Computed example of a mutant assay.
Amino acid sequence: MKIASIGSGHMGAALGKRWAALGHDVMFGSRDPHSERIKLLLEETGSNAQAGTISEAASFGEVILLAVLPDAVEQVLAEAGDLDGKILINCTNRYDGRSADEEVRRLAQNARVVRAFHTLPWEVLANPQYEQGTATAFLSGDDPAAAAVVARLITEIGLDPVDVGGPDRMAKVETAIGTLWGVLAPRFGREYSLSVLRRQEPEADAIR
């Protein structure tokens, strides 16, 4: 699969490296794709990675990860242009009371937006393995087919995808996780995570 990461900071780099290592073709979109920082990132990521401008990355990717700072969202999506049914994974966050989900849905032209990865620190994305179990990555979206693709990409890097439904439900999850972060991060650091444990539904034949 062709995956573009618009943003090459901690989040974009961590996920891009993981997906490239699994054999996906990754392009990092940057305003300066020839910078020394991007050259180093490409060396670290390997032969499945390349870099381009934001518009080149948007054209390249079947799936596009939006991993930029909140103040850059509007300009970056304007540069990306018409996304023409592409899957856009929104992992941005805002801390000023505005909804990062509503903003991206409003600005992303014709994209199939899925909200994911934003409830996890980049350190967990880079190394999601825990002795006690698998960390959960919450996702939401109005397009079931797009959400299923993102869930598969989540599973591939060793996380447990939990689709919480639409944007309203995700907003409640974000509030709960933000509250827990304020309590638990000072104790456990940035690499603590959450896991949703659920029982497997019994087979129909077994309950007859």
Rank of each mutant, 00 (worst) to 15 (best):
K2D: 05
I3N: 04
A4S: 12
R18Q: 09
W19C: 03
M27H: 00
R31L: 01
I38W: 05
K39C: 03
L42T: 08
E43V: 14
E43W: 07
S47W: 12
A49E: 12
E62A: 08
V68I: 09
D71T: 01
D71V: 02
V73W: 02
A78S: 14
G81L: 11
G81N: 13
L88A: 06
L88S: 06
T92M: 02
R94V: 05
G97Q: 00
R98C: 01
A100Q: 02
E103D: 06
V104A: 01
L107K: 06
L107C: 02
N110T: 10
R112K: 14
H118G: 05
H118E: 08
H118W: 07
T119R: 07
L120T: 06
V124K: 08
N127F: 05
R152K: 12
I154S: 04
T155K: 10
L159W: 01
V162E: 10
D163G: 07
V164A: 13
G165F: 13
G166I: 11
G166L: 12
P167I: 15
M170F: 12
K172R: 15
E174K: 11
E174F: 10
G178F: 03
V183T: 07
L184M: 08
L184S: 03
P186A: 06
R187I: 15
R187S: 11
S195A: 15
E203Y: 09
D205E: 12
D205Q: 10
A206I: 14
I207T: 15
I207N: 07
I207Q: 12
I207D: 09
R208H: 12
